[in-house]
Amino acid sequence: MTTIITTKDVTKTYNGKIKVEALAGIDLEIRAAEFVVIAGPSGSGKSTLLHLLGGLDTPTSGSIRVAGHDLTALSKNRLSDFRLSTLGFIFQAYNLLPVLTLEENVEFGLLLKGTERGEIREKVRKTLQELGIEEFAHQRPSELSGGQQQRGAIARAIVGDPELILADEPTANLDSHNAGALIDMMRKMNEGRGKTFVVSSHDPMVIAKADRVVRLRDGKIVS
């Protein structure tokens, strides 16, 4: 199986009032269609690593190659193109756009890509249906529960059929029932569509579903 993510000696240091070394020499390889969980306690660097893999932040040093792109060498515009074409990102806080309906949030990326209107309608309908939130299509995020919003965030991440889906603690704000349903859904997509999932979490339920678990502590991979 081909490698989709390769990181070499990646470090990330936040230079605020106090210097914080969030990641220290991360070497990681993830193969296509894997379901990898990055686990570790709070402050171990899980989210930082995920943000770097998604090109949402830049490393202090080291190199990151994702789906053939050297992220450290891409311009801001090329990074946007990369995220649009290759990546789906699921935030812990959902981060749906509050002024758009669920359907409009999901179709936003496709519109940016310039996808044809009919195709957009069809893809969005299918995705919402698959995630069981079709009936909420015309509601705004503020009218949805946490679980429904998180499904909406997943729909937005997968509707463009990206090779890689990064999910930052997707179950953190959900109850155990919703969390279980969500992780089953993600796993199903991973198995059914062959998508690569990299999920940061310290939720044992999520960790139990992983193909592989990468454990972080103090910014370093410990196992």
């Binding site: 515009n77 946007s80 995220r83 074409s85 935030f91 981060n95 756009l97 990326g109 940016l112 890509k113």
Partner: peptide, 12 residues
């Protein structure tokens, strides 16, 4: 919010 837009692929 602009960060989210950028994260989902909108160019600067």
């Amino acid at each position: 919010e602009f960060g989210v837009l950028n994260a989902v692929g909108m160019k600067p």
